[in-house]
Write a protein that binds this DNA or RNA. Structure first.
Length: 272
DNA sequence: CGAACCTCCTGCGGGC
DNA sequence: TGCCCGCAGGAGGTTC
């Protein structure tokens, strides 16, 4: 499931194929995503991308003349650079034919993703992006910010760091992993986190995301990069999806519970 | 405002 | 072996 590292891996993969490369045409094979895909998406034909950015888990492709594209991979989405002669797979929903004999394919079995065209305006001001919290790898995300955000929260720290208004890009996998690194139990009330604990958690979130990006993200089932390859961070997960298995640090069985309607994992010995 | 819950969808895996 | 059921999950929307 794409979180920040997987989206960043995708961004890095597609960027060199898109910048300055003319879009010959667009084919929407299945437009029923989380929001309907614009039926006139092919009006971006003959245009080209000037930048490929990421904001949280959203990808933004700025076009030279026709505004921008906002793409979210949802639960099971992926963007791949493909050979136009390669057969379509089930769930290849949107195809951009690029000059130079390549295709960008948006693939999304569960169709929780988003593929929007904004003809005009700043994509960062779009309602989906406008209220997002700070980027975890930016200076705006620090212990002070986290502490202030947590202060008014009755919810657990795990649910809190998954809230995009607190910090973007931290999904279910990295929430559990970051809390393990920081030695904080996921069920701890957010408002009860001390300053030093907030500092440690900020650093843990940053390090786990950075390292996962270096490994090309985490592949549990669906995620592949723009070349169709999986990410390799899964083998570095300490707690996620390891319920009942021995902690990789102290051998205590990893516990799991549902928090915020999401499966959550922690080591009862390493995290207090 | 925050918190809890619902919803979209398909693939997979457990159980029988 | 094969079928069926339930679950997984990002995040906006709804309700209280």
């Amino acid at each position: 499931m794409p979180e920040l590292p997987e989206v960043e891996t995708t961004r890095r993969g597609i960027e060199p194929h898109l910048i300055g490369r003319r879009i010959l045409d667009v084919v929407v094979r299945e437009g029923r995503l989380r929001q309907p895909v614009a039926p006139d998406l092919d009006r971006i034909s003959d245009d080209h991308a000037t930048t490929v950015r990421r904001r949280g888990k959203y990808l933004i492709i700025d076009l030279a003349a026709q505004g921008s594209l906002i793409i979210h991979l949802g639960m099971s989405g992926s963007l791949r650079i493909a050979d136009p002669n390669a057969e379509f797979r089930k769930h290849d929903h949107i195809v951009l034919n690029l000059k130079g004999g390549r295709q960008l394919r948006y693939h999304d079995p569960r169709r929780f993703g988003i593929f929007l065209h904004l003809p005009t305006g700043d994509p960062l001001e779009h309602p989906l992006l406008r209220k997002l919290g700070p980027e975890p790898l930016s200076n705006a995300f620090d212990a002070d910010h986290l502490r202030r955000f947590c202060r008014s929260r009755k919810a657990s720290i795990k649910v809190t760091i998954m809230d995009a208004k607190c910090v973007v890009g931290v999904g279910n996998i990295y929430a559990s992993e970051a809390l393990f690194r920081a030695g904080i139990r996921p069920g701890t009330a957010a408002r009860r986190l001390s300053g030093p604990k907030c500092q440690g958690l900020v650093e843990a979130i940053r390090s786990v995301l950075r390292e996962s990006i270096e490994q090309g993200g985490t592949t549990l089932r669906d995620f592949v990069n723009s070349d169709g390859e999986p990410g390799y961070f899964r083998q570095r997960l300490y707690v996620y999806d390891r319920g009942g298995e021995p902690c990789r640090s102290c051998s205590t069985p990893i516990r799991s519970a549902i928090m915020g309607q999401r499966s959550t994992y922690w080591c009862p010995s390493c995290q207090s």
